[in-house]
């Protein structure tokens, strides 16, 4: 939810160690969705995350900086250039 807490075993919390540890993966997860299992604490989240292909690199950069500040991931400021390169290397 907007406070980053997720919902039960359906939606994983953004505000989590998983996000902090996999911060570099998140731009591609937003753009292309994510189907693999995510383990946070004792919970395995299996529902697929839908893709948002309509978002531009600029919008994803804003999202990344918002999450970084809002949920205290302590990452450096994300530049548009960096996110653009990141998105070009999505698997």
């Amino acid at each position: 939810m907007s406070d980053g807490t997720g919902l039960k075993r359906v939606y994983p919390p953004i505000k989590s160690d998983f996000s902090a540890e996999n911060f570099e993966m998140i731009p591609c997860m937003i753009k292309n969705g994510y189907k693999d299992t995510i383990q946070i604490g004792e919970i395995q989240y299996n529902s697929a995350m839908p893709a948002f292909p309509q978002l531009s690199p600029f919008e994803i950069t804003n999202l990344m900086n918002y999450m970084n500040n809002e949920f205290n991931f302590n990452k450096p400021f994300q530049s548009l250039q960096k996110i653009r390169e990141n998105l070009e290397n999505c698997q």
Partner: peptide, 16 residues
């Protein structure tokens, strides 16, 4: 719908 990317999670939270 379960794969809804937009408003459903918010609505589901209120249903909960």
């Amino acid at each position: 719908f379960t794969s809804c990317p937009s408003i459903c999670p918010k609505v589901t939270k209120q249903m909960l």
